[in-house]
Amino acid sequence: MSAALDLHADPVDLTAALVDVASVSGEEKVLADAVETALRREPHLEVVRCGETVLARTALGRDRRVLLAGHLDTVPIADNVPSRREGDLLYGCGTSDMKAGVAVMAHLTAALAEPAHDVTLVLYDCEEVEAVRNGLNRVERERRDWLDADLAILGEPTSGLVEGGCQGTMRVVVTLHGRRAHSARWWLGENAIHAAAPVLARLAAYEAREVDIDGCVYREGLQAVRIGGGVAGNVVPDEAEVTVNFRFAPDRSLADAEAHVRAVLAGFALRVTDAAPGALPGLSAPAAAKFVAASGETPVAKYGWTDVSRFSALGIPAVNFGPGDPNLAHTRDEHVDVRRITAGAETLRRYLA
C-alpha cells in the first residue's frame, strides 16, 4: 500500500489526507514513506530517514535555526478513519493529536523555500506508547546534529495557544504492611488497607504550589491514582499499595521532586516507579521571544508532559503550539476546528517568513 501527499495543498486538506493514512503507533511506515517521498520533491531540503522518523532541513546559513517537531502516530482507531468534514469541524483519528499540527509544519517546510530562519522538520514515530520506543530516542542516538536548534516548536494540541515548557511527572508506590488474620477474628491481625487512611488524608489535605516562570503559572498536584490490596473476602489483608502521581513545576529537578514527595509522605515506605523531568519555558531566549511576538498570544503553562522536555534537556528552548484541542485527543469523536488550522499556519508563516 502507498499513499501520495501534496505538501503544497491547503493545510486543512493536508490534515485530512494525513488522517486518511492510518498510522497507529508501530504502524507508521506507510505514512512515513508518503511524507518522505513528498519532502524529497523539494529541492531546498535535505531529507533523511531514521527508522520510521522522517527528517528534513534547509541549509541557508541563517543566523537562527528553528526545529518543527511532531509525531506521526496515533492511538488505536475507533471507527474514526477516514476523516469526515462537518462545517468547520474535521473529524478523524489524530486530527487533534496531532496530524493538524504535522500538516501545518510539513506544509510550511515545503512551501517556504527562503525562510527567515533555517528550518528543521522532525516527524517521528511511537510517541503515543512507552517512552523507550519514542522515535526521538533513535534520532538522538543516530542523528544528534539534526536536533540542534535555537528553538523547538512541537505541534502538540494547544487550541492555538503558545504553551511554554511542560510539567514534570513522577509516580511512586506507597506500600503499607499489616498482619493477616481471619476477618471474624480481626483483632488478631492488622489491616494494611486501613493503614492507607493516613496516606490518603495527607494527599487530600495537600496544598498545591503555584510558581510563575517566564510569565507561565504552573500549578502542581499530588494525587492518589490507584489503590490496591486484599486477599479474600474473609481475610484481613497484610499488604496494600497506593500509587501516587506528582505533577511538578519545571523549576524542580527529579531529585527535588522525589525529596518533596518523601517529605509529604514521611514515615511511609515508598518507591519511585516512573519519572520524567519537566521543561522550563525558555521564553526569554531570543528565538522564543520572537515567536511569542509573532503569535500575538500570551504564553501559558503546559499542564502535562510533552516531548519539549527532551529538547529542554538538550539545552534547546521549546514550546508547544498546535491547532488541535487537547481535550479531544484520543476520543472517539476526535476533531479539529479547521479555522484553527488556518490561523496556526498563518502564525507560523509570519514567524518563519
Rank of each mutant, 00 (worst) to 15 (best):
A192C: 06
E163T: 12
L151Y: 06
L45K: 08
T109S: 10
R219D: 12
R252T: 01
R219W: 14
I213N: 05
P286Y: 10
A113K: 12
G215W: 02
H107N: 14
A4V: 15
I213C: 12
D145T: 11
R85M: 13
A275R: 13
T53S: 15
E52W: 08
E156N: 06
P115G: 11
A201Q: 15
V129K: 00
G160S: 05
E156H: 02
G233C: 10
L161S: 12
A205N: 07
A69F: 02
V264P: 06
L280T: 02
E130V: 15
T347S: 07
A184G: 15
T298S: 14
N320K: 10
G61T: 09
V292P: 01
V225W: 07
T95H: 02
F248I: 12
A240Y: 03
A266K: 13
A32E: 00
D13T: 12
V199D: 00
H71N: 12
L352D: 00
R143H: 15
H44W: 11
A263W: 01
G165M: 04
R350F: 06
L265S: 05
D337N: 13
S159N: 11
S25E: 05
V172Y: 00
G155A: 15
A240K: 00
D118E: 12
V30E: 14
P250W: 01
G229A: 09
V336P: 01
R209E: 13
H71E: 11
L265N: 02
G164E: 11
F321G: 00
T53L: 05
E156A: 02
V104G: 03
E128L: 04
D88M: 09
E27F: 09
G61K: 07
